[in-house]
Design a protein around this nucleic acid. Structure first.
Lengths: 186, 186
DNA sequence: GACCCCATGTAATTAGTTACATGATTCG
DNA sequence: CGAATCATGTAACTAATTACATGGGGTC
């Protein structure tokens, strides 16, 4: 539910039209989370219906300028003043996946972890490279990049912790030949 | 998009009905991400339509037993074998919020960070407490808890990094009296 | 003329939420 | 008997994705 408020935030700098809003959104976040134009327009329609946004007076049909209403400004301020609660966030697919894998017994959790780690570490490299290329003036993009890096590092460390916990919980399978859990059993 | 696959995973242990699936899901994740029963049934309906799941032969109308088809089993294995890509994840609301706040100039980013940190640190305490109470046998729940802790710690560290970056980027506002950015300007 | 960027939208589908309706069984 | 839990679902809505349709303007 961040697109709605992001549009309000972008409109707080001044009237924009839909197309510009998408560009601005992607500029701030460095294209990390691409935003479909269609969604901008449907979201704007809901915002207008709810009175958070209005089309400027000199309304060119094919070039609508949206601007914030006072109600919209209030909702934006509420957004900034309210922390993002843990319970508000979407389910963490990776955590759920490994929890399910671990309880299944039929799956080789270690190979799942291994596949994930490869991808996670690659992402970490990519972000580090991006950071070295980023210009020091682009504050929003740097914040997003830092967030991605911290999150990804945490994920890598968590994957290590998972392996350690697995080792403690059900000690490593017997060496060659034995009835090993197959790599993601078929 | 994790509910769909989670249901498949739970069904891999044997036939269940909808109600049980919800309980199992919440048991594995320690109730971190509550799952509405209604969604279980609508998801099961889609899974059945797509041939990933079927209702057992001795179909009691008011007590349907769902089980995995081979197609469903294949999709589950694919899920386990495929890493969760960075680009697949939902937008990070907190990162977006601070990026927007930072680019606005009109908002006191530091107070936004401060409000968030309070909440984040409180969450971290809660998780630590839960961890001390958890039983060592409950592997899935421990994995989820670890994930929450690592993620929340990373968030706290990121908030520090944001403040540091803000300090470097636009040095602290002048002391009392001056035209300070108000606390989440009204 | 073909192609790209600007600019607006609709349609269809999936995912998820909250709330409601219905009935059986169990237990104090 | 009443309340809780088991069990199945529908309705209405928000959010998000993908894909399509339409048209103006500029440029190679």
């Amino acid at each position: 539910m961040s697109v709605r408020q992001s549009l309000l935030a972008l409109l707080a700098e001044g009237p924009r039209h839909g197309y510009q809003l998408r560009q601005d959104f992607e500029a701030r976040t460095g294209g990390t989370w691409p935003l479909n134009v269609g969604q901008v327009y449907t979201t704007l329609a809901r915002l207008e219906r709810d009175g958070l946004v209005e089309v400027a007076d000199g309304a060119d049909e094919a070039q609508k300028l949206y601007s914030l209403t006072n109600v919209g400004r209030a909702e934006l301020e509420l957004w900034f003043a309210t922390p993002v609660r843990r319970g508000d966030r979407p389910r963490d697919e990776l955590a759920i996946k490994l929890a399910m894998a671990a309880s299944l017994g039929d799956v080789d959790v270690r190979s799942v972890v291994q596949a994930q780690r490869t991808d996670t570490l690659r992402a970490l490299q990519d972000y580090t490279k991006l950071k070295s290329r980023a210009t020091a003036e682009d504050l929003p993009w740097l914040l997003v990049l830092d967030s991605l890096i911290f999150t990804t590092e945490a994920e890598a460390r968590w994957l290590d912790a998972v392996e350690a916990r697995l080792a403690r919980h059900r000690p490593t399978a017997a060496p060659a030949g034995a009835t090993l859990p197959e790599a993601v059993r078929r």
